[in-house]
Design a protein around this nucleic acid. Structure first.
Lengths: 181, 181
DNA sequence: CGTAGTTGTGACTGATCGGTCAGTTACTTA
DNA sequence: TAAGTAACTGACCGATCAGTCACAACTACG
């Protein structure tokens, strides 16, 4: 019968904790030991469950985009059968809710900036593909509107990264108007 | 009179070469030795001219935003006295010209993702401030239009990072429509 | 020529980190 | 309880890298 291996559960737990760990300083600046500690296991065991640090990071990025996509779909479907623009607005609201926990957004940012590593670039492409397809499908909006949605999503990344919400100057308000609060 | 120190010239040369060096792998993944080699000096001398790796990176980021701002201003002023929307369009075209050389755009991305380091975050804020102020001033556009400009600029970053222009799929075309070619 | 200052470097160090491996604990099955 | 297997770790290794320092080379000036 199902051997019900606990290793799989540990893998899931490590990936889940790795989101927050990698979200702080990114791929290159986060030691595996830090992820291991956050997951409550030894560094050696992490290397046993994942094929190297890169494999761990890629799994974490995939997990991250899964959550983002799920959040957007959920937010969009909750809007009910309305116009594409209203669905996109609901999805925007759902995405902004994600910002309250910086982890998912920061991990995306760090994954994007580590795209020099081919495996990470592929993971980012997979993730963006899933997001774009989900947004297009659930909203039914035309490509231009979806592109607009993605553009303002990327603007959110800048705002969160540099914490522009905490800057009380004119230029910062111009950038974050209607987004951070 | 002016001691005409060559050290200052070396500093400028190192910063200029450091843009390309850091643009590849970012702050944490780029050894100072790599920057030194690109500049044709020894690593030890780089540490002598700059207060540590962090100081070098911050100087490089400042230099990068200087160039970006100058390019945007130049592009916008070349449009002549037309409507704000047309000036913004000219600036967009100028910014897209920057994409041909990935270096400036990639360095911005890496600087943004290293915002955990306070000094780097401050450099990014300074840079974004200069860009927003320059765009607002030269174009005379209202804040909403400037925000829109910045959002599509950030979208460019995603496209360049993941090299979406090289992906021939529907979702990728949705994201890069009218931007990459 | 001498000496003071500036440019520049080779050689080193202390610390960190990815990855390995031998071995130990704990659970299952007969 | 004996044997087998899967979960898990401490201790270690080799490589990399930021930063230092004593010293060389060149120039400026008296």
């Amino acid at each position: 019968m199902s051997p019900r291996s606990t290793a799989e559960e540990q893998r899931a737990k490590i990936v889940s904790r790795a989101v927050a760990a990698f979200a702080h300083a990114g791929y290159h600046a986060t030691p595996v030991a830090e992820v291991a500690e956050a997951a409550g296991v030894s560094p050696a065991y992490v290397f046993r469950l994942f094929p190297g640090k890169l494999g761990l990071f890629v799994a974490t990025v995939d997990h991250c985009y899964d959550q983002v996509t799920a959040t957007l779909v959920k937010g969009g479907e909750a809007a009910g059968p309305v116009s594409p623009e209203e669905v996109l607005a609901a999805m925007s609201a759902a995405y902004m809710e994600l910002i309250r926990d910086r982890n998912l957004i920061m991990l995306q940012v760090h994954a994007q900036s580590a795209c020099d590593v081919p495996e990470i670039r592929d993971a980012v492409r997979r993730g963006v593909a899933r997001v774009v397809q989900a947004v297009s499908r659930v909203s039914g909006a035309e490509p231009g509107a979806v592109q607009f949605f993605m553009a303002y999503g990327q603007l959110c990344h800048l705002i969160v990264q540099a914490d522009l919400g905490a800057v009380d100057e004119s230029w910062a308000r111009t950038v974050s108007a209607g987004i951070s609060h």
